[in-house]
């Protein structure tokens, strides 16, 4: 799924840190924005998880997601709070979906933006699937840990709709970023 074999570990970790930093930064920026409420975050930070997935593979994406959730929660002071567990469950759902989809790697010679995963989905499709999984896991976690009765499922269509929209937006953004990045190899040389 990636040019993994081609790049040395230090370089790989550097790239992951860049993406993770971008993800955390976006996450904190979003948290600072007022208005939308605790449930309706645009989740733009997930864009970087996607970029990591398509450039570096599933494990890298998992790393970026995990770092984002942990560092983000510590920075915002929500570490180990119910919000934190919601974030973790959402991230786990998304990452697991990515893992499933990455089963069959497509032609590694293709620039990352054009990669296809299991089922022929591209960047936007993967983003949409991961986003749906993310919100579903969060709602289940909220139902289990916090709310306790089935009333929350009445709100499910709204949550799913939001996730559908942000999934597509994130996918498009990730695509654009990947297109730009495609001009460089993973080692930083211009193609």
């Amino acid at each position: 799924m990636s040019d993994n074999d081609a790049i040395p570990q230090p370089r790989r970790q550097l790239l992951i840190s860049y993406l993770a930093a971008a993800a955390v930064g976006t996450h904190l920026l979003e948290a600072a924005l007022p208005g939308l409420g605790p449930w309706f975050k645009p989740g733009l930070a997930n864009t970087f998880t996607l970029v990591a997935f398509f450039r570096l593979g599933w494990q890298a994406a998992a790393g970026v997601a995990l770092i984002r959730v942990l560092v983000g929660s510590i920075a915002l002071g929500t570490f180990l709070s119910p919000t934190f567990f919601l974030s973790v469950s959402g991230a786990m759902g998304a990452v697991l979906t990515l893992g499933l989809l990455s089963g069959r790697s497509s032609c590694t010679a293709e620039p990352s933006a054009q990669r296809r995963v299991l089922g022929g989905f591209g960047v936007v499709g993967v983003s949409l699937l991961a986003s749906m999984a993310h919100i579903s896991c969060q709602v289940l976690c909220a139902w289990f840990l916090i709310i306790g009765h089935a009333g929350i499922f009445l709100a499910l269509p709204w949550f799913l709709l939001g996730a559908w929209a942000t999934g597509i937006i994130n996918g498009l953004l990730a695509f654009l970023i990947l297109e730009r990045l495609a001009r460089f190899t993973l080692l930083g040389e211009k193609r």
Binding site: L96, L100, A150, L154, L156
Partner: peptide, 18 residues
Amino acid sequence: GFPLLMVALLVAALWMSP
């Protein structure tokens, strides 16, 4: 297994709905 699990969970969620 995972997609099956997601589908099963979604079905359970629907069934549990008010």
